[in-house]
Structures are given as C-alpha cells and as structure tokens.
Design a protein around this nucleic acid. Structure first.
Lengths: 143, 143
DNA sequence: TATAAAGAGGACAATTTTATCTTTTTTATT
DNA sequence: AATAAAAAAGATAAAATTGTCCTCTTTATA
C-alpha cells in the first residue's frame, strides 16, 4: 500500500506530534527507537518532511524535530503525498497511463469507489486525532 | 497498490480469458503486444500463474496460454494472491509486524474498513465479468 | 570562544523489483 | 524422423527502493 519510507514517515510524524503536544522536541535517535525504524533512513525521510513543511527541525544541542501547534491539523494525505506522491489516489489499478472515465480499465469503476473511500479517509484523518489514540492506549507505533 | 508484476498479471489474464472465451489460445507475443507489457517479464509472470493453476499453457506450435471454461470464475484476489501474496489484504498500513485488534496501530480501524471493502471487491469480481466489460467496449487493457 | 550536540547533505551499499537474454524442453506439423 | 514453433527455466542486468556512513553546518552552552 504505502512504501516503507511512507510508513516510517507517518509513524515518525505521529511520534513527533505527540512530543510536540507536550512541548518537547524529538531527536532522531529517540524517534527511531520509539517507532522501531532504521535510524539513518529515518533521517532522510524526516529531512524530506521538513523540506515539505510538514514538520520543523532545529539544529544544535537541544535541537530535534517538532510540529508547531497550528500545524497539528495536518492530515495523513499531506504526509503520503509528500513521500509517495499521489499515485495511490490517482493512479490506475492496472497501471494504465491513460485510465479515465472516458478510457477506463476494466477495474476503473470498482476501484474508483475504493480509492475515493481511501482518499476521503486520508484527507480527513488528522495526526492530532491519531496521536490521541496513542495517548489513550488504543494505538501503538511499534512492533 | 499492486506491483507492476500484478498489474501485468491481471491484464494478461483478462486478455487470455477473452481469447479463451473464443476458443483461442493466446501466445506470449500477442499478449504482450495487446496489453502493452514487456514480453520477457510477462513470460515470467505467466509462468507463475500457470504454476498456481490460474491459467494453463501448451508448448509447441499452436501452443499458448488459455483458461479452461470451468476456471473463468476465478476472481481478482486469486491473481493478486498468486503474485503479490496477501499483504495487501492482511498487512498493516503502517508496517507494524504485530498489528491486530488487540495491538492496533493508530490507523488500524480506519484501514480495516477500507481493506475489507477492497477484499470484498477483489473476492467478488470474476475475470468473466471483467472481460465482458472489455467485450462491450467499456474497458480497455492498454495505454 | 571552544566544544559538543544535533540535523543536513552527499556518497555509497544492499536488497528488491523489474526486465532481458540464452538455452532447454515440449510438441504439432511436414 | 526432422523441423520449427512455442513455453519453461536459468542466468544476468538495470532500476528503484531501502538502508548506511561520513563530512559539513548550525547552535546551545560551558
């Protein structure tokens, strides 16, 4: 479904959001440990999320990654789009380049439904919601 | 969503099914041309589908790939499972190894819905249905 | 102001996926 | 029986993804 990079990216963002809610910055080491991801690879992904303005970073001692409170309303699709692009939402299930309403693959209509369901979910699920699931113990970020 | 191999596999199977409905065998060259896929790679995929008893093959002159009429009721999930395994249906959206009802990732419940929708579709869409879309000109296999 | 702690960036390496090429096996047809 | 057409099988290659390592830059703090 999502690439590994995207999976790590979402998990990392959720962890960072959680810390940010408590006015803490999250360092790379901690993040990788807490979401159980490869450290150096995670660094690359976080770099990209910073470039795309999903998260912020601070260098130097006491630095780390964080999310400004007015950005906690970002939704899953923001992260997915930043890392995987939007092929998951717009791409043809059978890989046709020009699949459309006018020139559909045989799966087009069946898939349109599922994709629109997925799209709706990704665009309406905020990371804030998700972190509160973690807070209340009904959602985990590792293992 | 699906791997390239799976996309080609579904498209190839649909083309073969179409030909089989007309009592024709489909050769590799024709298949690759008609679904616009790389020939040698497609051969590997067809090989796997033969091994998994999704399609049949015949060697020698007049040989090719075909589907026996009692097998035209196979569904999309048969093909997907044969090529991609069932990670798309059972795997965790965030890549957690032990994501479950008891130990869910924060996306688990939102995704369960989408996955069950997808599963239902894949398990209830026969290739016969899909080929009839192609026959009636409301579904294409290339470009 | 020196130091050390952090992220940024670039180069490289491993793995997986996608793709090709060559040889072998099977089999219909002559 | 010989031939040629076709798939099967194995080896190899290219590309993409995943992952690591090393150096550079920034910055808080002693």
């Amino acid at each position: 479904m999502f690439s590994k990079a995207c999976e790590y990216g979402i998990r990392a963002t959720l962890f960072i959001a959680q810390e940010s809610k408590n006015q803490r910055r999250a360092g790379l080491k901690t993040i990788a440990r807490e979401i159980n991801s490869p450290e150096a690879f995670t660094a690359k992904i976080l770099q990209k999320l910073v470039q795309k303005n999903i998260i912020k970073s601070a260098k130097g001692p006491q630095g780390g990654f964080f999310i400004e409170s007015n950005n906690l309303k970002i939704v899953l699709s923001d992260i997915v789009r930043a890392i995987d692009g939007d092929s998951i939402i717009t791409g043809c299930a059978l890989g046709l380049e020009k699949c459309s309403e006018e020139h559909p693959c045989p799966l087009h209509h069946d898939f349109a439904e599922i994709r629109s369901h997925l799209k709706h979910m990704l665009e309406n699920t905020t990371i804030l919601e998700l972190t509160s699931k973690i807070d209340s113990g009904i959602g985990f970020l590792k293992i």
